[in-house]
Computed example of a mutant assay.
Amino acid sequence: MQYILPSIRLWLVTFLVCVVLYTALILGFAQAATPFAANGSIVAVGGKAVGSELVAQKFTSPRYFWPRPSAVDYNAMGAAGSNKSPTSPDLTKRAEETIAAYGATPDRPLPADLVAASGGGLDPHISLAGALYQAGRVAEARGLPRGEVERLIEAQAASVGGPLAPERIVNVLQLNLALDRLGR
């Protein structure tokens, strides 16, 4: 009995310091230093939330750029890869359907990132090559010159990896919002 009361006090102090105080400190610092990121990088248009810069969304209309495939159907509550073997018939079927949806041919192969899901299934970016591959379809669906769509893609592309990963990538949500701002 002599150890129960000190044990409870130690548990309470540990809980308050490690759970409550630490969490409040980290949250307060994040809110002060980077409030946009701390609040989920939510993108709003006209005061209405339309998505997050950090989580892929499912776009299926030919008027929009499509993201990478998602093993979790773009559900942020269950971010995960598929855990299927590369020889899985399910993955083969999904890849064949994706290739057919893009109209890829041996003469015009589909960039790999448009066929393969990312590890978490929610990667909001595609490669510059993946965006340029879709430019023709999007331009035609919107009645825009392909060159205008390609210039928009180039303007949205960024090299976020620095010198160690210089390949340029494009945030699909931001690119689609930029398209909508064109008004067609």
Rank of each mutant, 00 (worst) to 15 (best):
E167A: 15
T87L: 14
L164C: 03
A157R: 09
L54D: 05
E97Q: 12
T60N: 05
L173D: 08
G143L: 10
Y102W: 03
R151T: 13
L179T: 08
V170I: 11
A112G: 05
L10F: 15
K58W: 00
L54C: 00
S159Y: 08
A79G: 15
E140N: 10
A100D: 09
V172Y: 12
A129K: 06
P89A: 13
D73H: 12
L12D: 00
A80D: 10
A158M: 12
V20P: 02
L164M: 15
V19T: 07
T98A: 04
E53F: 04
G119S: 13
A129P: 12
L5C: 11
R137D: 02
L27S: 11
Q134R: 06
A104R: 05
P106D: 10
V19F: 12
P166A: 12
T92F: 10
S159L: 08
T105L: 03
A79Y: 02
Y22K: 00
Q134K: 07
G120N: 14
A178R: 14
F29R: 07
A112Q: 07
A100L: 07
D123W: 03
V50P: 01
R68Y: 03
P111L: 03
V149Y: 04
R184N: 11
P163Y: 08
I153P: 04
F65I: 11
A131G: 08
E140R: 11
N75V: 09
A131D: 02
A80G: 13
F29V: 14
P89G: 02
N39R: 15
A38M: 07
S7R: 11
S85N: 13
S70D: 06
V149T: 14
L128Q: 08
N75E: 11
V45G: 03
G28I: 01
S7T: 14
Q174P: 05
A44N: 08
Q156R: 13
T105S: 10
G46M: 10
L122P: 02
P62W: 00
E96P: 01
